[in-house]
Amino acid sequence: MRPYIDKKNKMTKQIYVGLFIIFFIFSLLQVGILDERIFQAFSRVENLLKGMVPPTISEPIDVAGAAVESLQVAVMGTLWGVVFSIVLAMFAAKNVSPHISISYAVKAFAAFVRAVPALIWALLFIVAIGLGPTPGILALAVNSIGMLMKVYAEAIEEIDTGIIDALKATGASQFQVVMQGIIPSIMSIFISWSIFRFDINIRYAAVLGVVGAGGIGWELVRASRVMAYDEVLGITLVIFGMILLAELVTRFLKDRADMATLKAME
C-alpha cells in the first residue's frame, strides 16, 4: 500500500509542478515581463532621478496639513472601526450571540467587508459622499471592521464559558455579562489588535488620498501630475517619516500594554 500511495503523491506533485511551469511561461509571453521598453527605460529613469534630487517641498504648510489630515483619517477610521467591531463581535461570537444564525450572518457580513479592499471602499464612499477626508474615514472604518470583528469574535469565543455562567448565576443582565465579564477577559487581545490595526490604517491613510479621499496621498498625485518629481520625492519622504513615527508610537504603546500584562502575571 505504502509505495503505491507514495507513487501517487509523487505523481500529483509532478502534475502540479508541470501546470505551474506552463502557467508561468504562458504569463511571461502574455504579459511580456521582458518588455523591450525596459531596456530603453534607462534614460527616462535617469531623467526622473535627476528631477527628483534635491527633494523639495514647495508648500510646506499644505503638505504638513495634509500629513496631519492623513493621521486624523487613520485615527478616526480606527476609532470607529474599533467601536463598531466590538459591538458587532458580541453578536458574531457563538457563545454570546442571541442566536446562532445571527452569528453566521454577522460573520458573513465581516467576510464580505474584508474581501473588498480599502481602496475600493474609498472609491465607493467618494461616489456616495464626495471628495475629502470623510469617505477616507468611512473606508478605513469599514475595512477595519472586517478584520477586527473577526479577531475580537474569536477572542470572545475562546474565553471560558464558566465565566459567563458565573455572572449569569448572579442575576446579571446580558449587558452586564458583556461589560463586566467578557470585555475585561479579552482586554489584552483587544488592545494589541486595535494597535496593530491602527498601524495598518496609517499606511492606508497615506495611500487613500491618491483616489481623492483626503490626506497626503492627494498631494503626491498633484505633484506627479505636474511632473514636479523633486516634490514627489519630498512628499514621499514625509510619508516615510510619518509612517516611521507611527510605527515607533504603536510599538511603544504595544510594549506598554505587554509590560502591564507581564507585570500582572508575575
Binding site: D160, I163, A166, A169, S173, Q180, P184, S185, S188
Partner: peptide, 21 residues
C-alpha cells in the same frame, strides 16, 4: 429569572472568576 438568580448564590469547581479583574 434574574431576580430569582440573584437570590441563589453559586460557587463553581473552577472558580470562574474574572482573572484580570
Amino acid at each position: 429569572l434574574r431576580q430569582i438568580r440573584r437570590r441563589i448564590g453559586m460557587v463553581f469547581q473552577h472558580f470562574n472568576l474574572i482573572k484580570r479583574s
